[in-house]
Design a protein around this nucleic acid. Structure first.
Lengths: 161, 161
DNA sequence: AGATACCGGACAGATTTAGTCCTGTATCGA
DNA sequence: TCGATACAGGACTAAATCTGTCCGGTATCT
């Protein structure tokens, strides 16, 4: 759980590809072949990205897709939403407003903050970031509950959905 | 996509409940009744939390569950992992090491960082935070791509899985 | 004992995701 | 103008996952 769908993966891979190649344009088949992705599925993903104004499609021979704007202006959040629909951490948010009839779902507000923090991470991450891996190795020690998250979360820019 | 399962929700609700009540102990039925949750399902969740040393179970009449340690020492990440299994942002990480045979899955490393940032958010968030909602209204304007995430992510504590 | 309550596996239904198929339309180039 | 290329998009199937139920079993308190 709490994972991206393969479609979202494929979308990010494709966008990164388009952001990296000199021609800036590639067809579904080209991209699918390069990364060994199922063509029809990738096609659908790219169509969706086109509908949501992230890609521009060019029909006909030598056609394909290209980014609708600069890679630094396309956030991972936008991509994920376009492909998978709205991001939902807890069911409370969407369903019928409140959990069951009782509004003693006391965790809702606190979870909203976690939710927003995660959205913020995705919102800040752009296709540009994907295209240029920093690739510096990092220490890998699990630090349990390091610093209070309150301030961290409170300082974040609100992001809906 | 990118959402918690209901089980994880239930677990968090139950833990928050236990952290809030004076007796510090409650049975499955009590909790389920309070929040209108399906008893057998919640039971399974609580069992899992017991297996993973987050809860302590007390059998017999007037038995139930209580937190195995202070609420401030139980992170949301730990809970989610206990209930839903490892958190996986991209399939690349887990599957067969590399996507397909080709290692041109160029997005893997960058996505790992997003992944870690999200884990970090969950890791810092504790049951304690759940129990004390700050409940201050916040401005809600979507700020697209505010600040470069590079430094933000680089400054985070590494968390595996 | 007997009632309460946890333990844990097996199982069924619903939902979501992954992937395929097929028909249609637009564009380029010969 | 014809034909190949490539996008558009709906319908459909299969697999995986999630949700929820049912059951017999064990521990503990009164």
């Amino acid at each position: 759980m709490l994972k991206l769908t393969k479609k979202a993966d494929y979308g990010l891979i494709a966008l990164r590809h388009l952001a990296s190649i000199p021609t800036a344009t590639a067809s579904t088949k080209e991209i699918a072949d390069t990364y060994h992705l199922p063509v029809p599925l990738l096609a659908k993903v790219l169509q969706r990205l086109t509908q949501t104004k992230i890609l521009i499609s060019v029909a006909g021979t030598n056609g394909g897709y290209r980014l609708a704007r600069d890679a630094s202006k396309i956030s991972a959040l936008e991509v994920v939403r376009a492909i998978d629909g709205p991001v939902i951490l807890t069911h409370c948010f969407t369903d019928h407003g409140s959990c069951d009839q009782s509004d003693n779902c006391t965790v809702r507000e606190p979870l909203r903050r976690v939710h927003e923090a995660i959205l913020d991470v995705l919102n800040r991450f752009t296709i540009d970031d994907l295209a240029e891996p920093v690739a510096q190795p990092r220490a890998s020690k699990l630090t349990p509950l390091p610093t209070p998250l309150h301030q961290v979360i409170n300082s974040l820019q609100p992001v809906s959905n």
